[in-house]
Amino acid sequence: MRHIFALIVVGTLGLGLFYTLSHIPFGKGLSEVSKYYVENAIDKNDPHAGATNIVTDIVVLYRGFDTLGEVTVLFLAATGLSVFFFGLKKKEYTCEPSLIVKRGTGIIFPFILLLGVYIFVHGHLTPGGGFPGGVIIATGVLLIYLCCRDYKAPHSLFKVIEGSMGTLFVIVGLIGLIVGGSFLFNFLGAGKTGELVSAGIIPILYIVIGLKVGAELSGLVKDTMEDV
């Protein structure tokens, strides 16, 4: 009975979706706002431009306030997760991981950290950015937890990094407010296109976001993998 009802609902919605999507052309031109973004992407006179990667340009500069809210939502989710997991006993492991896994993890772990840092430092030149870089760092911490049962991550260090990076984000925004008249104003200028130190405050903000997300999710991994 439930299956038939669900099929009817899904079929009706599917017909509506098909009708709507068949009227939207696929692969036609850009919208007006996007034309503005694309045409002003690398422009020496526009303080809102400078990054080679236009998506980074939009995410960090044009919609920087939105990104601040996004980081806050992620922080709230991590806090909520650790609150709900508090006091739950985890399963007891019966055996120690083997020598091969331990040595392999020891070799791999620095390269994972390096990859994460590379991804968020080069966020304005190549695909990637603060969020994937932070998640890759957290994955490295998870790997350490899987291979060493007795490992305790430095929780207070994570908290300090997270809080100071959150403050730094707001401070950078406020400096922009004082210098240029708007929150998160690009007060450093566009710089020379295509180099590592360019695009004004975008690399600074992406390093801040990457470290904050990495510390946050490493704390989440610690909360879920350890007895609290």
């Binding site: 706002v33 694309v38 939009i58 996004e70």
Partner: peptide, 15 residues
């Protein structure tokens, strides 16, 4: 280039 605006929006939506 293709439209960068939906990509920026979806980047937020995934997180």
């Amino acid at each position: 280039v293709v439209d960068p605006l939906p990509q920026a929006l979806v980047l937020t939506a995934i997180v």
